[in-house]
């Protein structure tokens, strides 16, 4: 049996829900999400890990889904942009993106937001420099960078203000 015609079962959690897909060994996580699970929020901008449009969280950390095999996601927890909106209510980062006009065509936006989510999980009140560095892998050809940074800084400031022992 050729490697290509072999399929493996991958069971994992996607946006809090248990999922199972049968995939060939070389199928990427991005293809599994987009084509098997119809979660098309994560985009293929390059397919080779250079643009960040496919960024999702795996066990809470940002990952380029085009560079991870679906089988590597077995037993792990994947979060995509679709998981951020609960009952139609946008999460604070999504709202900040809209308020700051942090996108134009919007194609890279799911990746930008998930990369930022990854940073905020690790560091709830990042500095401007930390934000710039964390998002350096996410290309926005329309050039919304400054607005993305402004949206991110607003979230960071809110987090800092909420931190216990700090004046509001």
């Amino acid at each position: 049996m050729s490697l290509e015609s072999r399929t493996d079962s991958v069971t994992f959690t996607v946006n809090g829900r248990a999922e199972e897909v049968r995939v060939s060994p070389r199928r990427t996580l991005l293809a599994a999400l987009r084509e098997d699970l119809h979660l098309t929020g994560a985009k293929e901008g390059c397919g080779v890990g250079t643009c960040g449009a496919c960024t999702v969280l795996v066990d809470g950390r940002p990952v380029l889904a085009c560079l991870m095999l679906a089988v590597q996601a077995h037993g792990r927890s994947v979060e995509t942009i679709e998981g951020l909106t609960r009952d139609g209510v946008l999460d604070p980062v999504q709202r900040a993106f809209i308020e700051h006009d942090a996108f134009q065509c919007g194609f890279c936006t799911p990746g930008q937001i998930m990369a930022l989510q990854g940073l905020l999980r690790r560091q709830p009140d990042p500095s401007a420099e930390e934000i710039r560095r964390a998002l350096d892998g996410n290309v926005c050809r329309c050039g919304a960078y400054l607005r993305i940074q402004a949206a991110a800084l607003e979230i960071a400031r809110t987090a800092e203000a909420r931190r216990p022992g700090r004046p509001a």
Binding site: L39, T40, G41, A42, T80, I81, E82, L84, T85, L90, Q94, F97, I98, E99, D101, F103, G106, T109, P110, I113
Partner: peptide
């Protein structure tokens, strides 16, 4: 703010 902002930040677009 953009009227299609919700679509673009949520992956719905």
């Amino acid at each position: 703010p953009r009227v299609d902002g919700g679509d673009r930040v949520s992956g719905r677009a």
